[in-house]
Write a protein that binds this DNA or RNA. Structure first.
Length: 950
RNA sequence: AGGACUAUAGCUCAGUUGGUUAGAGCGCUACCUUGACAUGGUAGAGGUCUCCAGUUCGAAUCUGGAUAGUCCUACCA
């Protein structure tokens, strides 16, 4: 074995072997266990969030596979409508082409081409992570099978009356020319202005204070071209007399009724609101209440139309409405139009005032463009009826969120859910299975042929399919069952559905988790006909942030690529990576500075296992997880520790008798102790897996391997293995324990650290008396009560106490570690004597002792440094070794500590209330502590007095 | 505006139903290249558990409030 752990030398070969042997596929035996991967975006590459969640999923998958379950971790990716279309359009732009130059069909071919060449990035990266997904079943949301599922679901929902088409206001992205759902809109606070305009009153009307105009305030002056009403609060005395009167819209001369509506807040602005029903969601509702028309004034680019279009609320065009707009506005961009409106009002003396104002601006999460509420025909899913069963499922525990608090987030959204706009004006995606005849009648079906048969439309009637595609999340919502072959085949759904757990971030609870629940429960039923849940548990992970708690983003230049952690990267390469392709190139200098500060030496290669272990260590219940590279380095060292422990074990067992072929075996106290402790670890790890406490699990494994197995057990094995007088049976016992405990630890750690455990396991398998080609298919260790040994644990605690006591004297007194010490024991019990007798060689070796002498009652002790182990006094004679003043200081320190503690406990015990009300056991424990401290203090005082008398 | 979450060592974080000497990693101090490991060993230093009040015999832990920070949802034009 290499002297240090070299991850890059082993990871690739093991993964290749696992995959080639198809060990990731379900065994076909046992109870099923299934996790569906949240499908990464096909344009995406692996980021820390993926690495984090996939590590957890892989750990769960490997754990359950080792427990003998019929385990499937289903991989795949989604087609990411907008993102993918953008990527390919950018590629076209470099050839000076647009998608319109190619036409729809050719463009889609081009996207598939791109997908074949570049869509696989993330699967390659997942292999580097060690993900044990069943690659033979990899799916893509645009596959034939999944596309069938999408059509089937669409048609059935339409037939069930849960999908409808309507002309409504939608969130329109003027950059991408598509509608998006409300979830895809990000509302951000931005600085703007509040313009106050004067709208002259018609017919000589006057306000209460005698003015012949109303002042309306707006953040979007350009929309005044689409105003149809002015609203005031019905209780606002300033305006009550004007309700029912009109204002004359400047620039157009349109007469707008003044209406009363509770929506208006009299306190805000002037108390008068201009109402633009076709360009604002609130105004839409106000207009509807007051029988207004909908007046659209923008085209798909959010440029002003030459002629406004009027609609009724049922979506019908009002053909005879005069939609004339003022000269010079047609074709203007909305922000140009705004400037012109303001200038025109100013010129007319109708610009009352401008005030600074912060407002929430809606922007498309992908385009960054300001979203325009726009009147269009779109398809919607009626969400309420679908939501109901899912709410019940969470309420009655059929679906459980971990941590539980996320259920509240889920409920609050579900109970107030809005219809979901599912149509997108894109080319890349599932084209909506709806056809129109020349009159605009809608026919929904699985294919044009089906539609013609079903609706008895012969070939003479021309049908055209809806141009739009479905929201990508629509297909992702079917993920748990579409990937299993629904609707064509039911057998896999029967075997693996409902899946066991969904591992995901809280950021997509609404986008994906909730919608998956709605779709699944509508379409998949249990044997008794009740809706089937997609998964029994949802483990909601935190979001990975940088070491300062900042979200990782390209523009902040703080993104960490998991592969850079695994492989290492130089500072220069990291800077280059972070500063290339920035939207705002001026940020480069700042990013370089902070990157060089955080990573002056770049990143060291730590290997996959160390990264995975770090990620599980960070998987606590919090919402945010700040990733600190320092932690990773610590766990890289841990891997090296395991490696070297294995080296030690091999050096002492290879080619020797480890009891794999029988033979007499005698276990030492140390053997019995470490075996007993191992049982505790095994039950802890199982419990932590069940509770999704990967942080505590990692911690437990770390502590055991480092602080018990390496620090103590390996050291305790040395006196046995080095003792030429020791019997074969004892040596065989120690070797067997060494290698078998290590082997069990490897299996325990394998779900989190697959590579290093496989590498070592293969080299110690035979020594440990095991068979099998790979650790990943070995049984997961289970605790056995019969191997627990309280006595051994107590005895080792005593041994450790004595050793640590002596080491403490050595350390504090600056006695060279190499110097062998003579030690005296005094005042011990019979049990102390037994323990000494049984463990003398352990003590001598581990504390580096020259001799141990038991002082009988009458014996005079020489001047010594003292350490108490219970009531036993451990004395290190001072002659020539110990500085009196230093020993006084050391004893003084212990004495202070003991006195402080005693005072605290006595305070408790002298409190009548405590004695009266606290449980017996607690009181007894405190008494015991107090007694021990009193004895302790007496000893220390005696010792100090003796020193002073010198 | 409503809601949620967070506040523990210099830094990043654990602390399960109230009873611990409040822990880990990294960093820090001293000593040590001893035959698994200097990516190491041994021994240390370092915390009024944000603040205030309450419940309790007993609070890092439960309750209320304050402060600071983060996020989500909804918005006043």
């Amino acid at each position: 074995m290499e002297k240090t752990y070299q991850p890059q030398a082993i990871e690739g070969k093991h993964y290749k072997r696992w995959e080639e042997n198809q060990w990731f596929s379900p065994s076909g035996k046992g109870e099923s266990y299934c996790i569906m991967i949240p499908p990464p975006n096909v344009t995406g590459s692996l980021h820390m969030g993926h690495a984090f969640q996939q590590t957890i999923m892989d750990a769960l998958t490997r754990y359950n596979r080792m427990r003998g379950r019929n385990t499937l971790w289903q991989p795949g990716s989604d087609h990411a409508g907008i993102a993918t279309q953008m990527v390919v359009e950018r590629e076209l732009a470099r050839e000076n082409l647009t998608r319109h130059d190619l036409g729809r069909e050719t463009f889609i071919d081009r996207v598939w081409e791109w997908k074949e060449q570049s869509g696989g990035t993330i699967s390659t990266q997942m292999r580097r992570l060690g993900d044990s997904v069943d690659w033979t079943r990899e799916r893509f949301t645009m596959d034939d099978g999944l596309s069938n599922a999408v059509r089937e679901v669409f048609v059935r929902l339409y037939q069930d009356g849960l999908i409808y088409r309507g002309k409504r206001l939608v969130n329109w992205d003027p950059k991408f020319h598509t509608a998006i759902s409300d979830l895809e809109v990000e509302n951000k606070e931005e600085q703007g202005s509040l313009w106050h305009f004067r709208y002259p009153l018609a017919d000589g009307a006057k306000t209460a204070d005698g003015k012949d105009y109303l002042v309306v305030a707006t953040t979007r002056p350009e929309t005044m071209l689409g105003d149809t009403l002015v609203a005031v609060n019905p209780d606002d005395e300033r305006y009550t007399s004007l309700i029912g009167q009109h204002v004359v819209l400047p620039l157009l001369g349109r007469k707008l009724p003044i209406v009363a509506d509770d929506y208006v807040d009299s306190e805000f602005g002037s108390g008068c609101v201009k109402i633009t029903p076709a360009h604002d969601f609130n105004d839409y509702e106000v207009g509807k209440r007051h029988g207004s028309v909908l007046l659209n004034m923008f085209d798909q680019d959010a440029q002003v139309l030459h002629q406004a279009e009027a609609y009724q609320y049922d979506g019908k065009r009002i053909e005879d409405y005069d939609g004339s707009l003022p000269e010079g506005y047609g074709g203007l961009d909305r922000f140009e139009a705004r400037k012109k409106i303001i200038a025109d009002f100013d010129a007319l003396g109708l610009l009352d005032s401008i005030k600074d104002h912060t407002l929430m601006v809606p922007r498309g999460d992908r385009s960054g463009a300001v979203i325009e509420p726009w009147l269009t025909d779109q398809w919607y899913v009626s969400a309420k009826p679908l939501a109901e069963p899912t709410i019940k499922a969470v309420e009655n525990g059929d679906i459980e969120f971990v941590p539980k608090q996320w259920e509240n987030t889920f409920f609050s959204w579900m109970r107030d859910i809005q219809d979901w706009c599912i149509s997108r004006q894109l080319w890349w995606g599932h084209q909506i299975p709806a056809w129109y005849d020349a009159q605009g009648n809608i026919f929904v079906g699985r294919s044009e042929a089906e539609v013609r048969t079903q609706y008895k439309l012969d070939d003479s009637i021309a049908l055209t399919q809806d141009e739009d595609v479905l929201d990508t999340w629509f297909s992702s919502a079917l993920w748990t069952f579409s990937t299993l072959g629904w609707p064509e085949r039911e057998d896999l759904v029967k075997t693996f559905h409902p899946t066991n757990v969904l591992v995901t971030g809280f950021d997509i609870i609404f986008f994906w988790v909730a919608r998956m629940m709605m779709m699944t429960m509508h379409f998949i039923k249990n044997d008794d006909g009740t809706p089937q849940v997609p998964f029994k548990q949802v483990y909601v992970t935190g979001l990975i942030r940088d070491e300062n708690g900042q979200k990782m983003s390209k523009s902040k230049g703080n993104v960490i690529d998991p592969l850079d952690l695994i492989d290492g990267i130089s500072a220069d390469a990291l800077v280059a990576k972070r500063t290339s392709g920035l939207m705002q190139p001026k940020l480069a200098a700042k990013i370089e500075k902070s990157t060089r500060k955080s990573f002056p030496e770049g990143m060291q290669a730590t290997g996959t296992d160390a990264l995975r272990f770090t990620l599980t260590s960070l998987a606590s219940q919090g919402r945010d997880i700040n990733f600190d590279v320092k932690r990773l380095e610590g766990y890289r060292n841990f891997c090296n520790k395991i490696w070297n422990a294995a080296r030690y074990v091999l050096m002492n067992t290879e080619g020797q008798d480890c009891g794999q072929n029988g033979g007499e075996v005698e276990l030492t106290l140390a053997d019995r102790w470490i075996i007993s402790r191992l049982q505790g670890l095994e039950s802890d790890v199982a419990r932590y897996f069940d509770n999704y406490r990967f942080d505590l699990m990692s911690q437990a494994i770390y502590e055991f391997i480092w602080n018990e197995y390496c620090d103590w057990y390996l050291e305790l094995s040395k006196p046995v293995l080095w003792d030429e007088a020791a019997s074969d049976a004892i040596k065989r016992g120690t070797r067997r324990t060494l290698v078998r405990v290590l082997e069990a630890l490897l299996r325990l750690s394998h779900p989190v650290m697959p590579f290093i455990t496989e590498e070592i396991w293969l080299s110690i398998r035979d020594l440990a008396g095991r068979t099998g080609e790979t650790i990943m298919l070995q049984p997961f260790p289970e605790a056995e009560a019969s191997k627990m040994d309280q006595q051994a644990e107590a005895d080792i605690d005593w041994v450790k106490g004595v050793i640590v006591g002596i080491r403490n004297i050595r350390g504090e007194m600056n006695i060279a570690p190499g110097k062998a010490l003579p030690v005296l024991f005094q005042k011990g019990s019979e049990e102390d004597r037994r323990r000494l007798q049984e463990n003398e060689s352990f003590l001598k070796t581990l504390a580096k002792l020259e001799s141990i002498t038991w002082l009988e009652d009458g014996d005079e002790a020489p001047m010594s440094a003292t350490q108490l182990v219970g009531n036993l006094k451990v004395l290190v004679p001072m002659a020539g070794l110990i500085d009196v003043a230093a020993e006084q200081a050391r004893l003084g320190k212990s004495l202070d500590k003991a006195r402080g503690e005693l005072a605290r406990i006595e305070g408790k015990l002298s409190n009548d209330n405590f004695v009266a009300k606290a449980p017996e056991a607690v009181i007894a424990k405190e008494r015991e502590k107090a007694d021990a401290l009193v004895a302790n203090i007496e000893e220390l005082q005696g010792q100090l007095a003796q020193l002073e008398s010198l």
